[in-house]
């Protein structure tokens, strides 16, 4: 959760192709309620401060498993495992 309910991020790199392209912007909402399979989320990388944008593939009680749409070129839960729900910064509601 972030303090501001709405954030805009500029997306870098290619793991969300074809949904989100390098250089696109995403609008995310911090107060998103339930996260469901298929949602696109902005989250904190478990190993650092880097923010990632990925798609939710599985929702567990206190964690979510996220993957990139472009599986061939994505570092995601397949590498770093499921992430804690607290790592989620927002749910993407628009791609520009």
């Amino acid at each position: 959760m972030t303090l501001l309910p709405v954030s805009i991020y500029k997306v870098k790199d290619n793991s969300m192709i074809p949904t989100i392209l390098d250089g696109d912007y995403v609008i995310s909402i911090g107060w998103y309620g339930n996260i469901r399979r298929g949602d696109i989320v902005v989250l904190r990388h478990p190993a650092g401060a880097m923010r990632l944008v990925k798609r939710v593939e599985r929702v567990d009680a206190d964690s979510v498993y996220v993957v990139g749409d472009n599986r061939a070129e994505s570092e995601d839960s397949r590498n770093f495992g499921a992430v804690k729900r607290q790592s989620l910064l927002g749910k993407v509601v628009a791609v520009i």
Binding site: S7, I8, Y9, K10, V11, K12, D13, N14, S15, M16, I17, I20, D22, D24, Y25, V26, S28, V42, H45, M50, R51, L52, V53, K54, G68, N70, A72, E73, S74, E75, D76, N79, I96
Partner: peptide, 25 residues
Amino acid sequence: FAKLVLDRVDRIVPFQRAYAHCDIP
């Protein structure tokens, strides 16, 4: 148009970056 506007804004006050991190790794 929205993207053009955001690009302009980003040049002046950069938005936070979210990485669609593509390391294979």
